[in-house]
Write a protein that binds this DNA or RNA. Structure first.
Lengths: 127, 127
DNA sequence: CTGTATCCAACTCGATACTG
DNA sequence: CAGTATCGAGTTGGATACAG
């Protein structure tokens, strides 16, 4: 039997964008059920980035996919899009307040990964 | 430009299971690039569960898919599988030490989701 | 109960080409 | 530079049936 306290207390049902959730964490799991959105949050947790810059780090990603993911994240209120009236065009993506609140999640992901890498991975030093 | 300190310091390349990663966090993102594995960790973070119990919570999941995901998590050293010599058979799945170290990640996921739900969701109380 | 085997629908995402 | 359009390969994961 699930212990409601440990798994994230359920005080009823949550309605969000037409969907119903019993536990709020399910919102996160559905939101980040793909390969890319949380990675983009991770990159942006470092500061704002341009479209092309993100594209470079996420290679091999296509413009279509990146564009779609950024739009989804904006609709989820996790990032903000700023267009500069320049030639060539410049668009910067930044974490919204709610996106920035994902920083503790990202930090724990980094900490866990470093520990996991130390146990099971092999490190190749640079010089 | 990515700030290596903030994004999880890169001290070289990491080799793991034949793959090469620049940042350890990439291990996590590749590991949990599907819809189910982190959800299973979330359920098991509450204590061990049997196959059928997990299946019930993850509906609509098929035996094939659940079986495959549990095997993958075991190969990643995140869960442990214990078979009891009973009739009918009983198999219990439990977080391994490395799986338990994901608890802080899960906790932050729960905290963030609750806050997000409070902002954008609508709560329907039980009674 | 705890799986495995087959089949297949849906979705994600990349390749390529093109636009303002 | 920052997208959009079209196409298609690959993967995930469900439906169904069956086994130990």
């Amino acid at each position: 039997m699930i212990n409601k306290e440990t798994i994230g207390y359920s005080f009823g049902m949550i309605k969000l964008n037409g969907n119903t959730y019993q536990y709020s964490a399910e919102i996160f799991f559905e939101m980040f059920d793909d390969r890319l959105k949380l990675m983009i949050i991770w990159y942006l947790s470092n500061g704002s980035m341009r479209f092309k810059e993100l594209s470079k780090y996420l290679q091999p990603i296509t413009n279509k996919t990146l564009s779609a993911k950024l739009k989804q994240l904006e609709e989820l209120h996790l990032i903000e899009r700023e267009v500069f009236a320049e030639v060539p065009p410049r668009v910067e993506y930044t974490l919204s307040p709610h996106g920035q609140q994902l920083k503790p999640v990202i930090d724990e992901v980094i900490a866990w990964s470093q520990h996991y890498a130390k146990t099971f991975g092999q490190t190749i030093n640079e010089e």
